[in-house]
Amino acid sequence: MAALAFVELEEGQAKKSSLEAVSYASEVEGSVTAISFGQMADGELDKIGAAGASKVLHVTDEKLATPNIMAYASAISEAMNKEGSNLLVLAKSSLGDPVAARVAIKTNAAMATNVTELPDTSDGFKVKCSIYTGKAFAITRLSSEKKILGLKKNAISIKEDGGTAEVEAFSPATDDGDFKVQVTNREKATGEILLPEADLVVSGGRGLKGPENWGMIEELAKAIGAATGCSKPVSDMEWRPHHEHVGQTGVKVSPSLYIAVGISGAIQHLAGVNSSKCILVINKDEEAPFFKAADYGVVGDAFEIVPKLTEAIKAQQG
């Protein structure tokens, strides 16, 4: 019996968070089968194998090439049955979350989401879940035989020595009822580092005064290979697109480094960043609440500090 891991492909490439799901499943259950939909780029199979899967069920049906929540849920439930899997692991995402919830109902599985570390199996099966938007954790017992875990980013590091995976073509049954939602268009930033996946994030707030001042944020981000984010008022005023809005009512990030520039650190903003490994705050007001949540801080004018910091980073990169 193998655990099943759902591996999302983004322009043919396995998402990093999905590889974390593969490695997590392999730590828990040993044997892992991955399932992926659509075109897979060269070399991805090796990565999925190295992360811990011994097999990839690859769905190439044209109808399923673009994400379809209901149809993917049906296919994944079928795959769980076929593989005899009692455990499904996936990364939290706009696709993974709804698919997982539907599979939970279809397979009568217990589900936990925002899982932050490996389970405790010393007495039953218990997982640690982030709750209250990162302000607390719930140690949650899953009692059903079948279990589904939605992982928060960085719940585990990706293995690189798992092994090799073989591909098995998989053609799940499709049901017309699963095609009631018609996706007419998809607008997606290309070439950018996606915020929820990013390991480094540079975020700007109202302190930056206007959208015309984002150049220095983008340059700093580019210098270190970071994604860009912002506070809620910034996206409300449409200085930045909504998908960059970080916080309680926006994207929750958990990068290794979060750099906050001209953001006061309101509790609702902190809720989205408090699982970052390290936080650097740049703010001209030494009383800004964000400094209480920060590891490093620079008190001063962002318009002077940010370009200088970018220079200092570039200089040390040689």
Binding site: A109, A110, M111, A112, K126, K128, I131, G134, K135, A136, F137, A138, I139, T140, R141, L142, S143, S144, N274, V281, F291, K292, A293, A294, D295, Y296, G297, V298, V299, G300, E304, I305, K308
Partner: peptide, 22 residues
């Protein structure tokens, strides 16, 4: 119920910020 919270935990307290001269 299928998922049952047994106990809650709070994150560890954060150490004081290290300020660096601009």
């Amino acid at each position: 119920v299928q998922a049952d919270v047994e106990v809650f935990e709070l994150p560890p307290a954060k150490e004081a910020v290290k300020l660096v001269d601009p």
